[in-house]
Design a protein around this nucleic acid. Structure first.
Lengths: 221, 221
DNA sequence: ATGTTTCTCCCTATAAATAGGGAGTCGTAA
DNA sequence: TTACGACTCCCTATTTATAGGGAGAAACAT
C-alpha cells in the first residue's frame, strides 16, 4: 500500500545493529539500506553515488567521527537528510545540540523497539519524534526557562563550544597541562588558558575535573 | 538433540534486549527465560523461587545496581551463576575486575551477534568466552606484566584503593578542591594531598583529570 | 559597512596542585 | 610481639590553574 521507507543504520555496536535490523524486518513498510559502524562510514556511504535513505538512524558515540560531526558534515555540505538520533544519553544539552544541528527525532536506547518503528514512520512523513523520556527532559528544560518578561532569548542552545575549545577540551581529558596543550597545538600558553577560562564559564563547571566529567558525559571523548 | 540452554538478559536498553532476543531466537538450542532492565530486577528475579537460568548476560551500566554490584551480590550469597558480561567498556581494569568477581565471559557490544550465541554455548558448557577485542586487551595486559623471575604476584588486580582514597576520589569528581575536601571530611589539607598523591601513583595517571576519568570509566561515580 | 564571533595573546595576582621527603598513631594479622 | 598497611599530618619547592581584566586580527553575516 504505502511506499517503502528506506533506512540506514549507524552505531558502533554491531549487536545493536543486528537487533534493530531484526526489529525493523518485522515491519513490511520499512527496509534497511545498509549500515555503518563509524561516523566516517556514514559519510562515505552517503557520499557514494546512488546511496540514499529516507531516514538515518544515528548513534552519537562512534569512532572516527561521532554523531555530532556527522550532522555538522551534512549541514556544511547542504545535505538535507532526515536523522533520528538513537542514543543512551539523555542530557538536555546533548538533545538540544542535536536539535540545533537539525535532527528530526531523538529516541533513547531505553525505549521499546516498536517506538523505533513509530519514529521512522513519523520522521519519514515529515514529523518529529521523541521518545517519552526525551519528551520529559525537553519539557522540563522549557519549564526551567522562565524568562523575565521583556527579555528576548532567541537562542535555543546553551552556549556552544567552538572548534578550538573542543580541541583544548579533548587534550585536557588526555591529562595534558596548559603548557603541553599549547605546545601540541602550537599556541601560546595564554591562549590555551583563555580557552580554559571560556570552557569553565560556558559549561558552568568549577575546574578541569568538571571539564573532564562534562566531556565524558557528553561523549566528546 | 542437545538440551536447551536457558538464558536471562539484563540491560537497561530495551532496544538492545529486544535485538538480542531476536538474535537468540534464531538458535533453537537457546531459550530466553526473562530479562531485566535494572540490576535490582536481576537480583529479584534470581531470588524468586523457581527462577533460574544457565547463563546470565549482564550489562555493566544499569540503574539501581550496576553489573559489579550484581556479581558481588551473587558472591556474597553463595550463588554460583554463570555470567557473561556484555559491555561497551573495553577498559582492562574493568575486564579484570569482572573476572575477579567470577564472570565466565566478556563480550563487547561491538561484536557480531553470532558471537553471543557462541559465547552462550561455550559458557553453558563450562568454558570461558571472550570476544576478540577483549582477548587482545587481556593478552596485552599479560604481556605488560613481565614480572621479574622469582617475584610472586598473586594479586590479579592492580593496586586497590583504600576506603579513604575512594572518599577523596569521589569528592574530586564532584569538583571539590583539596581544601574543600579537607573541610568536608574533617581532615587536614596535608592529609587530603597525601591521598591525592597516592591516588595519582596507584592509578598511574598524571593529574586530577586522570583521576576523574578513571573514576568515570570504572563506574566509581 | 558594521557588528559579531572566533581566535589569538598579554598583564596581574592569588589559589591550588604536584613532587619529594619524613614521621607518628592505630589496628590487625602473622 | 612485630611487622605491615592505613591514616594522619608536616616541611620545602616548583609548576599549574583559576580569576579578573584588556586588546588586536580575521572571518562572516546582516
Amino acid at each position: 500500500m504505502s511506499k517503502k521507507i528506506y533506512v540506514h543504520l549507524a552505531d558502533d555496536h554491531q549487536i545493536l545493529i543486528e537487533g534493530i535490523i531484526a526489529i525493523i524486518n518485522t515491519d513490511e513498510d520499512i527496509e534497511i539500506r545498509g549500515y555503518s559502524l563509524t561516523g566516517k562510514e556514514v559519510i562515505d556511504w552517503f557520499s557514494k553515488k546512488g546511496n540514499s535513505a529516507d531516514v538515518l538512524i544515528l548513534d552519537i558515540t562512534m569512532p572516527l567521527l561521532d554523531g555530532f560531526e556527522v550532522l555538522k558534515y551534512f549541514n556544511k555540505n547542504g545535505i538535507r537528510q532526515k536523522v533520528i538520533i538513537l542514543s543512551s544519553y539523555d542530557d538536555i544539552k546533548i538533545v538540544q545540540e542535536m536539535l540545533s544541528l537539525g535532527c528530526s527525532g531523538y529516541i533513547s536506547k531505553k525505549s521499546a523497539g516498536e517506538h523505533i518503528l513509530e519514529a521512522i514512520k513519523a520522521v519519514a512523513g515529515g514529523e518529529q519524534y521523541f521518545s517519552s523520556d526525551i519528551q520529559k527532559i525537553l519539557l522540563k528544560s522549557f519549564a526551567g526557562q522562565q524568562v523575565p518578561a521583556g527579555a528576548a532569548p532567541n537562542k535555543f542552545l546553551t552556549e556552544t563550544l567552538t572548534d578550538r575549545e573542543l580541541d583544548v577540551l579533548k587534550l585536557i581529558t588526555e591529562q595534558l597541562s596548559s603548557p603541553e596543550i599549547a605546545d601540541k597545538l602550537s599556541l601560546g600558553i595564554s591562549t590555551v588558558e583563555t580557552h580554559r577560562k571560556n570552557l569553565l564559564r560556558k559549561l558552568k563547571v568549577k575546574n578541569s575535573v568538571g571539564l573532564a566529567m562534562y566531556a565524558v558525559k557528553n561523549n566528546i571523548v
